[in-house]
Design a protein around this nucleic acid. Structure first.
Lengths: 203, 203, 203, 203
DNA sequence: TATTAATCGAGACGGTACGTCGAGTCTTTAC
DNA sequence: GTAAAGACTCGACGTACCGTCTCGATTAATA
């Protein structure tokens, strides 16, 4: 008989020694990151400044975010309200609900500047880009795929659409607005894009 | 009679003394700018590096381009082939011709990286943004307005479209592709977008 | 009668609870200190590095050596062979024997670099300086005082010498050699200095 | 005939383009270096602090003093009054005059702390050590050699002395006093050492 | 034909930020 | 209570760029 089978002596993945990551520090850094993105933008983003404002050491920042862009992406994602899956029978509304958080989120204060910075960071740094695309995949692409598959089954839209193309159509105007136009998304944006997507996918 | 002919002391925009701007230097700087955008991207774009590689002095760069972003926009515009106004009766083709240069231009070497950098610069710096929007206005918006007006008159598309919205629809997928996806535009991109725009504008 | 015998509840300097100081750790730290002094010198001496190489925690080091310099002095003293009091009738030999350990000790490996580091530490930090001067007092100054007093009584040397001045004369060339010249003491050094001291003290 | 021989067109080592080294900056840095050596000593000497106090950029410091120690040595040498060659017939006085500047210089304010720092720097860094030894060679060793050679010729001292040993005897008590004792040299130090050296070199 | 004003390269300057390392303190788990 | 492990804030390291400046050389219109 092994110790494992005897039961009481089993040590299930014993925690390592020493202090754990400081949650207070993590939150302060992310908040300071948002402020710095608004103040300086992505190009002039300064890690020193974030450290100063968060009363954190640069060491701590570099320990947990080896790439600066990842920190910005994480800070931006924290601003986007979590999606509430709509079960409405109005499919356009269900699609709009997916990107509604962007519309809503970017209208609070300078949140659009934070998102713009994070998008640029995702474009500049490989790791940040992956973080961002992963988030998009689970929060936009996957739910959208479900909705569209359902509609295709009912023959409400054509069957040969490309899911990535559909995502692109749905959100690229938002990025254009945020990055090139440097502005929040206007009221009704989400619904408008949803309608446009459905029109483009009409059989 | 003009003032010029009236008096011998009039100086009709007399040229200043001393040597004129060096064209060789200007071209070398723009070329080095493109290389630097490919090598380092917009965030890490270094004026020192451009000066080194162009064998130019920093003074010369700052004299002619007070803002770094303007230099990048100018460098990128130099890569886009000049538009050849199509007189085809196929309106989709005429629209596609407008953005064809982006598709063509970004498929040569690392040109897409240069364009990405310039777009980010235009988003970051006011002066660069204006340069870029001016170029877009005369090279995309104005011709597109003519074509769409013609079509609206023939009732091929609906009449209440918004021209800025139309430009947005036409090119935002390109920017998304270049900035977020970090990739050149794929073959047939221009025609595809033109078709999609017409579909969206259908009466 | 002592207090101890009077009552059963008396705690005669009872040892504290818990484990006592780890001798293994202490030795490992002193050894790592010597290596670090050789590798990096006093100016770049790193406590982190000592902790790493001794597989000790920084906490342990700071607990027992509040000042870094004291650790270096202790490490260096450990290298100096203990003096064997000579009873020779040759007084020059008896004096030479006092500083012979420096000559002998600094000729083994990189011991001279350790001693140099410790001397600098003693010059930089008050506590380290005191440790060092205390050691010098009991190991050099006190025995030398005895020898010289004996000689003065026999009128072999003059009577009005200053003991501190004598110590200075005896060892300052050693420090000069170690610190400024960065070299071990050469063969015969101890005897030479002893002779020179006696000559200077001649009546 | 070459241009050189013709005379007037000769360009003797034409000065290079661009600005020359700033003397004001150099002096401010050396002064701040002295203050920093007094404030922090050699071990905790901070280039950042020097830059701050001298209102200079670190770049400028590292451009002209690749090694920190060299800067300290240069700063210290600037404090030592230039030696005035004595032509006295009193040879002890002539020797004392050589090291008089140390005695005089280290009694002004905290100059002894500056010299101590520079000596430690010379012990720690190769380049600084060479700078220091070069200065010593031309300012102490060379003049002393002349004086002693003269005396040896007159048979006032013995002939088989070693010049480096003589220098060592003359100044090692000074270093001991400055480094280990952390004190200025006491009044009459120079003369005392000169007398002692002559006694040691007596035939 | 000189003078003069503007351009060019080179590069030094005071600054700010980079990403890394060490100091000294504190927290957690093991023994 | 001591030890190892290691996270924390702070500050310095030596390097790279920023945007400004000074300098000597060059070039073309003016005097």
């Amino acid at each position: 008989m092994t110790e494992d089978s005897s039961g009481k002596k089993t040590k299930p993945a014993r925690r390592r020694q020493g202090p754990r990551r400081s949650e207070a520090s993590r939150l302060a850094i992310l908040e300071a990151t948002r402020e710095e993105l608004v103040r300086s933008g992505w190009r002039k983003f300064s890690v020193d400044s974030v450290a100063r404002n968060a009363r954190a050491s640069k060491q701590t920042i570099y320990r947990w975010w080896p790439a600066t862009g990842s920190m910005c992406v994480e800070a931006a994602i924290g601003l986007i309200p979590s999606v509430t899956a709509s079960t409405s029978s109005d499919t356009a509304a269900r699609i709009a609900a997916l990107i509604q958080p962007f519309e809503t989120g970017t209208r609070n204060g300078n949140a659009h500047a934070v998102l713009r910075g994070a998008l640029m960071a995702a474009g500049d740094e490989k790791a940040a880009g992956e973080s961002w695309r992963n988030w998009m995949k689970s929060n936009i692409r996957a739910p959208l795929r479900l909705i569209l598959a359902e509609m295709a089954a009912k023959q409400t839209i054509r069957r040969d659409y490309d899911i990535d193309e559909a995502v692109n159509l749905l959100i690229s105007p938002a990025w254009h607005n945020l990055i090139v136009m440097r502005a929040p998304l206007k009221d009704g944006f989400a619904r408008e894009q949803a309608d446009r997507l459905l029109k483009a996918l009409a059989p």
